[in-house]
């Protein structure tokens, strides 16, 4: 059963990746908005934002990476929705294959596509002067966090992909995700915010993840925040996966 799941997942991931390759604009579009934000905040607002020393682009990049993923997963929801509404999903479900491979194919494709978009954004940031003193281990830790965060949001995206009734409903779910980094330490330090907003910013997942990635890039110790970030990512992943699988099972009864 496990080897079958693996084999079918590989086949179906190849199919989804072919979709991405045939419309590379989805990767570009995913990267364009975050890159535009990067330019806007660094070259327009950045001069007026005080982040306590260092280049603003270094401060900003971690949050922009999370926004990239948040906007990228809406394409995953869209591709899954297309399969469901077009009947391909049911065709696969009525075939003698490992059934959940259909979902895993979309999830792995989402991971690959989002990592490519993230890499594009990092390259632009480097061109804009982003520099990191991080060693190999720190880079791997950043990669690990981004992967976990992407998987968590992807499983979240599976839910509207399975249940949405229209294309608009599919893309709508990602707006709050894209907005969340704005109320965090991603753009400005939280200290300047009014108390209730600061409290929210300090206790939502984005702040701890952004702070951890920022410290990893700066080759600074991550401390307890690193564990909080990891806990958020794993926790979100578990919850999103559970909800997505429950939604998936409800569809077939």
């Amino acid at each position: 059963m496990t080897t079958e799941l693996l084999r079918d997942t590989v086949v179906l991931s190849q199919r989804c990746l072919r979709h991405v390759l045939r419309s590379p604009d989805t990767i570009i579009t995913t990267a364009v908005t975050p890159i535009a934000m990067l330019l806007l905040f660094v070259y327009v607002f950045g001069g007026a934002i005080e982040v306590g020393g260092g280049d603003y682009v270094d401060y900003l990049l971690p949050g922009i990476l999370l926004i990239t993923v948040a906007s990228g997963v809406s394409y995953t929801a869209f591709r899954l929705f297309t399969d469901v509404s077009g009947g391909l999903f049911e065709r696969f479900q009525s075939m003698p294959i490992a059934r959940s491979a259909v979902l895993w194919g979309h999830v792995l494709t989402s991971l690959v596509a989002n990592l490519v978009s993230v890499a594009l954004v990092v390259l632009v940031a480097v061109a804009m002067g982003f520099r990191s003193g991080a060693g190999v281990l720190a880079w791997l830790a950043v990669l690990g966090l981004v992967v976990l965060f992407t998987l968590a949001l992807t499983w979240l995206a599976v839910i509207p992909g399975l249940t949405a009734r229209s294309v608009d409903g599919v893309s709508g779910f990602s707006y709050p995700l894209i907005f969340l980094p704005f109320i965090s330490s991603a753009f400005v330090p939280t200290e300047g915010m009014p108390a209730p907003v600061e409290w929210f910013a300090e206790h939502q997942p984005v702040t701890s993840i952004v702070d951890t990635i920022r410290n990893l890039f700066a080759a600074q110790p991550v401390g307890a925040t690193g564990w909080v970030a990891l806990a958020w990512c794993v926790g979100l992943l578990v919850v999103a996966h559970t909800l997505a699988m429950a939604t998936y099972r409800r569809r077939t009864t």
């Binding site: 199919r15 072919r18 077009g86 009947g87 391909l88």
Partner: peptide, 9 residues
């Protein structure tokens, strides 16, 4: 099924 379940891409 009722609608052709083919991969358009």
């Amino acid at each position: 099924g009722q609608f052709a379940a083919v991969d358009e891409v």
